[in-house]
Design a protein around this nucleic acid. Structure first.
Length: 428
RNA sequence: GCCGCUGUAGCGUAACCAGGCAGCGCGGUGGCCUGUGGAGCCACUUGUCCGAGUUCAAAUCUCGGCGGCGGCCCCA
């Protein structure tokens, strides 16, 4: 049977080494949950279609795994987690003190064309803060994104940052309704400016709004204060936009003070998800064109679900981080001691020894094959096992084992207790 | 959704251009050698992605499908 008939396009088997890397990343994320006070939750894999029709954005919406269940409901495999977590908070946490800080590590599904770093099922971590409008919350999200990169030993990353509030304030000022705003921002994000402008022209807006957006869009700089200054000049006649820009400035200043990674300010930056209302960002690693994480502020989303509280969050991509990490971030250590019982009379001693080792947390196993000693050694060697405990009739008589150090090639006869003592430092 | 490259055993490959018995390495399984030869030796194991077409003859040439890899778009 051909494997490729059994594994769907865009899906994959995750092998031990890859899995170990993902585990490493996940444990780093969970450590940040603890240190920053995020409480981990899990939401349903399958959600009603409506949840993502609310505000997920056209891009994601037409790439959902979508079907009718046996009860006739239109359902989807979650294409992202933020909407689900927002729903969870609205449904279950109305009586909790604010701010509510939620973390998650969950798989998501998108029917994209697979390519480098892109699969149809992938895994995201997530940090979401509900109930605070303060820039301090925005900065905490930026900070946690930066810390994750650094804790994983990734130094050459930068954060592309923008502010949808500024763009939306301009559009609102010129009377562009929200659903049109979503479309226009989507086009701006794709750098399809002329199409965005066509829409604005078609609803009879004057050229001023187009000029403003064009000028703003051109501001892309690794010098945040310079970028902010330029933006201020452009927006000085629109107080609502200046207000948003002040918010952006505050976030950037606090972020720099708390040591987040290098910032690339992009005033024309918008994200595919329609629910963003303020600061937005994506995390990039040099030499990799795709984002390894992203996030932003979404103050209106929970309101649509029945509890109007501000929120900000981010989602690191676990598979993509794994792509960046070297294999050597995880140890290749496997079984420490392989026990080979060559004669039936040795099995009792072998069982006793393996239990003693495991009880002390030392990874050990009995070779269950009763093959030639040289084949057993070959197996141990290929698996990278450090010690082989050999039990033949001679050892059975002495109630001892011959412990062979596979790296040095020497061996000594020891009592089981002595073996445990010797290997104690390999305890996990 | 679009574009490019690609598809030979479990894995890595040769034969493809220029059509003519599909071969090698690794692995796996079994066996032989007093229990340290982490070996060796012997045997076995499994394959041209699928479907059409051209041809006396297709792994090889053509077309289509599917898959893989990468790019665009978008994102994680």
């Amino acid at each position: 049977m051909r494997d490729n008939l059994l594994t769907l396009r865009g899906m994959r088997n995750i092998l031990p080494r890859e899995k170990a890397k993902m585990n490493r990343i996940e444990s780093e994320i969970r450590r940040l949950f603890k240190v920053y006070g995020f409480q981990e939750v899990e939401t349903p894999t399958i959600e009603p279609l409506e949840l993502f029709e609310l505000k997920s954005g056209e891009e994601i919406r037409h790439r959902m795994y979508r079907f009718t269940d046996l009860g006739g409901r239109e359902v989807v495999l979650r294409p992202e987690v933020t909407a689900s977590v927002a729903k969870l908070v609205v449904q279950e946490m109305r009586s909790m003190p604010l701010p509510i800080k939620i973390g998650y590590i969950l798989n998501v599904f998108r029917y994209d064309e697979p390519q480098h770093g892109r699969y149809r099922e992938f895994k995201q971590g997530g940090f979401e803060i509900f109930g605070s409008k303060s820039p301090l919350a925005d900065v905490e999200i930026l900070e946690v994104s930066s810390r994750l990169m650094e804790n994983l030993g990734i130094r050459d990353y930068y954060i592309k940052i923008g502010h949808e509030g500024v763009l939306r304030a301009i559009l609102t000022r010129f009377g562009v309704e929200e659903s049109i705003q979503d479309r226009v921002l989507g086009l701006i994000d794709k750098e399809r400016l002329s199409e965005a402008f066509e829409i604005l022209v078609s609803i009879q807006k004057d050229m001023e709004v187009i000029e403003l957006i064009k000028k703003l869009w051109e501001i892309k700089s690794k010098n945040p204060s310079e970028a902010l200054k330029k933006a201020e000049g452009i927006l000085k006649d629109i107080p609502e936009a200046i207000e948003q820009l002040d918010n952006f400035r505050e976030i950037i200043e606090l972020a720099q003070a708390s040591g987040v990674g290098e910032l690339l300010v992009d005033m024309g930056f918008a994200r595919g998800l329609d629910y963003y209302t303020g600061m937005i960002f994506e995390v990039y690693v040099k030499d990799l064109r795709i984002a390894v994480g992203g996030g932003g502020r979404y103050d209106k989303l929970t309101g649509l679900l029945g509890w109007d509280i501000p929120a900000v969050g981010c989602a690191p991509g676990i598979d993509r981080l794994s792509l960046v990490l070297n294999d050597d971030i995880v140890s290749k250590e496997d079984i420490v001691c392989l026990i080979v019982s060559m004669v039936k009379e040795g099995d009792l001693l072998a069982s006793r020894l393996v239990s003693m080792l495991r009880a002390r947390g030392i990874p050990a196993m009995i070779d269950p094959t009763r093959r030639d000693l040289s084949k057993a050694l070959s197996y141990a060697s290929k698996r990278g096992v450090k010690y082989v405990a050999i039990i033949g009739s001679k050892e059975v008589e002495n109630n001892a084992v011959s412990l062979r150090d596979m790296e040095v090639g020497l061996q000594e006869e020891l009592k089981p207790e002595q073996v445990v003592e010797k290997l104690l430092s390999y305890s996990v």
